[in-house]
Amino acid sequence: MTLRATKAPVGRTTGESVREYGRGVAGGLLFSLPLLYTAEVWWAGTTMEAPRQLAYLAITFLLLLGYNRYAGLHPDSSWTEVGIDSVEELGLGLVLSALILYTLGRIGGQQHIDDNLGRIVVEAMTIAIGVSVGTAQLGGGESEPGMAGTDRVTFGGQLVLSCCGAVLFAANVAPTQEVGVLGTEMSPLRLIGVAVISLFLGAVILHHSDFRGAQRWVRADTIGAMLRGTVVTYAVALGVSAAILWVFGRLDGVGVNTIVGQTIVLGFPAALGASAGRLLLQ
């Protein structure tokens, strides 16, 4: 989460670092407060088994590595720096999560440590991504990310940013009961409707609405390229949607119809995140 906008390789003063962490904290809470205030997320922390929590940690760390590598940072940051930043963000996420959950009375001495830790870890992951985004995006003036000629549209980089955007938007909705209700009760025709709307919105945002950064980051000169970009973005959204649902235990012991239904339902916010969110995260 370090930003180097200055030309000369000079380290930051303590004051600058403090301001940077301040932005991180603000961003972390901005994006994750809905989750900190959601009962289903506390319960997910209670019931989630340790291996799944480890997987959640690993996925989040990979996303942070990707985000720190492809957005916000100076393009010549080494992987070591990216790794250090990602560890810092996860650590800040854990501390913020513990602090807020304790203040809200959701963790404490009367519960088993596994229970407390589960709640902290589950909440900390979105906070960590928020910290990363906040540090890079909420800065003013000279620390504007994406400067210094980073005008590169690499396919892998855009894919990673789409994932981050999708996670940030879909994670706030995924643990709620409503996704399960919708995924189970909606008829196939309505599900197709949601999928069509998701695809359509993705296409409009990426190619037809003059969205901030769309001209710069999404280069599609032919109809074929537009279609490809739209479909790839929606595929990322569906993948992220299924992964988050799995993390929160929503796919355990349910039939294929429910799995597909929930994935499409959550794929809607994920698609918005993967298209609009991704452009805002650059």
């Binding site: 390789p9 380290g11 930051r12 303590t14 560890v87 650590g91 800040l92 501390v95």
Partner: peptide
């Protein structure tokens, strides 16, 4: 790596927690 002592401290604490 250009890091000041505060940043190294934050990194150290974060690493230990993680």
């Amino acid at each position: 790596l250009e890091k000041n002592s505060l940043e190294w401290t934050v990194f150290g604490v974060a690493l230990i927690l993680l």
